[in-house]
Structure formats: C-alpha cells, structure tokens
C-alpha cells in the first residue's frame, strides 16, 4: 500500500509537471487557458498543494493576474483562491507581493474574478498582513460591493467587512466614502 501510494503520488507530481511545462512551452492561447484551468482545479485538492508549491504554480498564478486575456486572469485568480486556503501557499503568495496583485483584481469586470479575489484576500489575512489588507481603499471597495445587486458579491463583501476588519475601520471607511460622495455632489463654484 505504501509503495503504491508513493508511486501514485510521484505520478501525480509528474503529471502536474507536464502541465506546467506545456503551459510554458505552448504558443497556443487556447491550450494555455485549458492547462491553466486544469492547474487551478488541481489546486482545489489539498493533496496537490505540496506539488503545486514545488512547481511554483503560486507564482505562475500570480503572473496571470497582470495578463490582458481575461480568462487568464480569472483562472489564475481562481487558482490562487484555491491555493490560498493552505497556510503555506498563503505565505508564498504574501511573499510574492500577492496582496497588491490580488487587490487589482477587485476592479475586474468579471464577477467570478472579483469573488475569487475577495476570498483570497480573506485567506491572506494574517496578523502581519492584516493592516495592508484592511487598507482604506480595499474597505471602500468592499463597502461598494456590499451594496451590489449581486447577492454573491454582497454576501462575500459582508463577510469580509465583518470578519477581517474592526467596526471602527468600517465606520471610518464609510465616513470617507460619504465625504467623497458629498464632495462630488457639491456644485463647483461658477466663478
């Protein structure tokens, strides 16, 4: 059984490695998308986390966030959402400057990408990263999402605001937002 287990897991590692290699070597955008989606889905299963870390798939996903192809961004963000559940992967993402990259995805036009980004940000929250993740700009973003028409976005933003931030932080961000809106609403002096 043990022998079998280890050969199977090395098979898995090799398979994942083949995927990563194909991703890097292929010029086909379509193949890249498929492989990326495969890798992101493999990241859903905790038993692949080790391999994906070894293969530096965390960085691969992070790289995708700045691509022009929206599918790349969505799949990469989905992969990070899956991987960041694991504390070790979380730390790698944090070290790779993940917060800023993930935060940029909050302005994506695709809901799935935004949802993945919010969940990832929650996963990335540690005592040391908390201050960066609860930055006023991010909180304002979440406040806007919490008023969204989409129930999924609304709920997820609500969880973020309730679980990752203090009430004072939220209140402060609300004030700032109102301040901005009020400022926008005030007619400019005519002279």
């Amino acid at each position: 059984m043990w022998k079998k287990g280890s050969s199977e897991s090395s098979d898995r590692f090799e398979y994942l490695q083949t995927l990563v290699t194909e991703f890097q070597d292929t010029d086909s955008e379509e193949a890249k998308e498929q492989v990326l989606a495969n890798l992101a889905n493999f990241a859903y299963d905790p038993k692949n986390m080790d391999y994906l870390r070894q293969l530096q798939v965390t960085d691969l996903f992070l790289d995708m966030l700045t691509e022009d192809n929206e599918n790349f961004v969505e799949f990469g963000m989905g992969g990070l959402c899956n991987l960041s559940m694991d504390p070790e992967c979380r730390d790698i993402i944090l070290q790779g400057g993940g917060i800023r990259l993930v935060t940029n995805c909050l302005s994506s036009r695709r809901e799935e990408t935004v949802l993945s980004a919010i969940t990832t940000l929650m996963n990335l929250t540690t005592p040391s990263s908390r201050s960066e993740i609860t930055d006023a700009a991010i909180l304002q973003c979440m406040l806007r999402f919490s008023l969204s028409e989409s129930p999924r976005l609304r709920n997820l933003a609500a969880v973020f605001l309730q679980d990752c931030c203090t009430e004072e932080q939220v209140a402060q961000a609300e004030q700032q937002m109102q301040g901005q809106q009020a400022a926008v609403g005030i007619p400019l002096p005519e002279d």
Binding site: G5, P46, D50, M85
Partner: peptide
C-alpha cells in the same frame, strides 16, 4: 478542511 488535510499529509496518501 484544507488545513486538516495538509496537516495529515505527512503520510503518503494514495490517490485511491
């Protein structure tokens, strides 16, 4: 679930 699963991962887990 993920945290528990990776913690138990020291033993080699066959795919089956």
């Amino acid at each position: 679930y993920v945290i528990r699963a990776v913690q138990n991962k020291e033993m080699v887990i066959p795919a089956h």
